[in-house]
Amino acid sequence: MSVSLADVTRIIHELWPLSGAESWDAPGLVCGNPGRSVESIHLAVDAVSATVDEAVGHGADLFLVHHPLLLRGVTSVAEDRYKGALLGRLIRADCALLAAHTNADVVVDGVSDILATRLGLVDAAPITAGSAPGTGIGRVGRLAQPTSLGQLAHRLAQLLPATAGGVRVSGEYGSVVETVSLCGGAGDSLLGHPAVQGSDVYITADLRHHPASEAREQAGLTGGTPALIDVSHWASEWLWIEPAADQLRAALPGVRITCSSLRTDPWDFAIVQ
């Protein structure tokens, strides 16, 4: 089966509506002829040299990524610059590029929803409500059985693909955890949200020194919660790729859908003192 890129783009935007994207975001079609036939789609979190080579090697007609390659403005796509080189490689291979970013974060079965489901959260709901029921940034819920902060961190380490940064935790190893809030990707903007502050632990990625330190100092005045668990940005979003592929397989029967097996976390190793 083959369908046009325009039809595939429409279906993708039905699954992950552009109306759900944050105002600063840049999801959607980056390059490609809308009239081009699509018989194969390859998925990855990031458009980097290795995953572009993988998509082209698979003979993909469309490379669907989570992170927009052109999120910030550029003034040149010359091929002595990596974004230009990637676009040139895709265009010469007649492989379109499309991003589903925050519009794929907020939906049911989106990035944070998948992470909440895999952790087994009960009654999970968005931290910030979106325009449609059940949609919004992040998730907050409770574990079916309370556990310790340390055991929850170990569960995350088993659930997520391994990265050099691993899983970092701020809080007492043995403290009891039941209420969990989380946000796949960078989520320090939610540290002050009442749902996060009311949780036993907040799981997210890319926590910086000062926001994390200030959040934990404030927690010290209110019973020590929430504890913080910081994971790899890429790893926290990687869990979404295969469920997204399954949604595309259901919507596009006959189109070949493949998923990247490559780690695109930017860190290669860590030395622990």
Rank of each mutant, 00 (worst) to 15 (best):
T75M: 09
R92I: 14
I12D: 02
C31F: 12
V201C: 12
I12F: 04
A93G: 15
A245E: 01
E79F: 09
L239H: 11
S148T: 15
G187L: 07
L248Q: 00
G88P: 09
D265W: 05
L115Y: 09
A21S: 15
D61G: 11
V77F: 13
G84S: 10
L71F: 09
T75R: 14
L262K: 11
D25E: 12
S189C: 05
H210Y: 12
V3G: 12
G110T: 13
V122K: 15
A205K: 07
V201F: 12
V38E: 03
A251H: 02
G73R: 13
P161R: 05
A26W: 12
R36F: 07
T128S: 04
A186P: 01
S261D: 15
L248E: 03
A125D: 06
V180S: 01
E178G: 04
D80Y: 10
A162K: 11
G166Q: 06
A50E: 15
V3I: 14
V201E: 10
D206E: 15
W24S: 03
G35H: 08
H42T: 12
H209M: 03
G174M: 01
G84P: 10
L207G: 09
D123Q: 15
L160Q: 09
S40C: 13
A116I: 14
V231H: 10
M1W: 11
R263A: 14
E54M: 13
P226A: 11
L64I: 01
Q247R: 10
L228F: 10
V65M: 05
T204M: 00
V196T: 10
L252W: 06
T147A: 10
P34Y: 02
W267R: 09
A245R: 00
F269Q: 09
D123T: 13
V167E: 05
S175I: 06
A250D: 08
P133Y: 02
G220V: 06
Y82P: 14
R81N: 11
E172H: 08
D105R: 00
E172Y: 02
A157S: 09
A44L: 12
D46F: 00
V107M: 12
P243L: 05
F269A: 12
G198H: 07
D188L: 03
D46W: 01
H193G: 05
D200E: 06
L149Q: 08
T163C: 09
A47Y: 02
S4W: 07
S181K: 06
A157Y: 00
E214V: 13
D109H: 14
S40G: 07
T147E: 10
D105G: 00
V177A: 04
L43G: 14
W234N: 02
L149D: 08
D94Y: 14
S181Y: 08
R256G: 08
S112W: 14
T163A: 04
T135Y: 02
V65W: 02
W240V: 11
A104G: 06
R155E: 04
